[in-house]
Every structure is written in structure tokens, then in C-alpha cells.
Amino acid sequence: MEELIKAKEPFKFCTRLHLSELTGLRATTLGQFLALIKQVSGSCIYHHTHRFLQQHQYLSPEPPNDFAYWVTDILGEDELGERLVSIDTIQYSTIRDLREKIASTIESYLKDSPLAKLKFARSGEEFHFIKSVSFILPTNYIAYDLKEFADVLKKITIDSIYFHIFEARLRLEKPTNDFAFWIENSLGDKKLANNISSFDPYTSTLEDLRNKIIQIVERKIVN
């Protein structure tokens, strides 16, 4: 086994904890839903497209977002639900772009199926818009090489993994996830970095994601 490369700058693991802030905004019909999706803050769009990942870790890959769940289960618009579920979130590098895609998907559906505008949610089943407030804290865990990196990955919270994979990229608008960025820039291993940035994290549970990354890194250490 070759000696592991030591990074000059260690990877500093952060964690991200969140608080849900209520907006008091609610939608009963698809028309109201669309209007509010266009109007609410990016933190709201982020909350409803990512909440499931953290709150329902055992369920992923479905249902991945609140919008699709409400449209399908409450309004009974299965086709629109399917279109919203299939939005390939990893393709979008900003919340702005993601919001536009969600809004245009609903708009085009309403054009094709105008009767869907007449549907409404029963009392108590309205869609409530909530936003995510993120608190980012450095943890005490750091790694200088791949062995230390894999060891820390085994014990940090899934909130930390979530932060470095999802939030750093989409909400903080970084070009790739933090893990891949550090491996490429501090360890100089572009191939391994590509391996880690190339899979779609939205189709795994966070625990599966943790195991997948550990596996890729450990395979690299052995070879």
C-alpha cells in the first residue's frame, strides 16, 4: 500500500442544523400554489425540496419533495406529481433555477389540464409554506488524509454529510460537493473526486450515501 498523501489544508467537518420558520402562507388550489412558489423566498423552495431527505431518512428515494407529495396525495394530480418528482435536482446549481423549473412544470401542466385548477385541498390539508433556517457549525473533526477522512465519515452525524453534499452545493452555490472539492484540490486526486461527485445523491438515503462514500474512499486506500 502506498503512503497516503497528506493534505496541507485538512478537511474540516462542519455540521448543519436547521430550524423551520413558518411563513403563515398557505395554498388550497394549484393556482395559489403556483403563485406562492413564484413569490416565496429561496429558503422556502429549499425547505420543501430537501426536507424529506433529512426528516425521512429511511424513505428516500421517495417521496423526495413536499410539492410532489401534496400534489399527488392531497390534490390527486398524479401526473403532475410524477413530473415534479422527476425533476432532476442535481442538474440545478442554484435555488433560482430549481424554482423556475418547478414553476414552469406546474404552468405547463395547467395549460394542458385546465380542469386541475378546480381542485382544492380539504380544510386542514392546505399546503403550508415553511422556510429553512440553517445554522452551520464547525465540528471538532478534521482529516489530513483519506484514512482519517473515512474514519471521521463513519462517526459524524448525517447532518454533517447532508451539509457537505447537498447544502454546500445548492444553497451556498459551490461548483461541486465539499468532499469532492477537497479531494481534488487538497489531495490532487481528480479521479476519486469525480467518482464522488458523479453519483446522484438524491436517490439514496443519507445512511446509504455515507456508506457509499466510505466504500469508494476505502477502496482507493487499499489500491
Partner: peptide, 18 residues
Amino acid sequence: VFSAPAFSRKLAIRQFLI
């Protein structure tokens, strides 16, 4: 602070779901 989203209203202050 409210316990469920349905309990919230539009308010002039910040409100959180806990």
C-alpha cells in the same frame, strides 16, 4: 413558536415550527 404549520398565521414577527 407553534407546534404545527396549521396553527400559524401571517404575523408581523418571526414564527417558528417546533
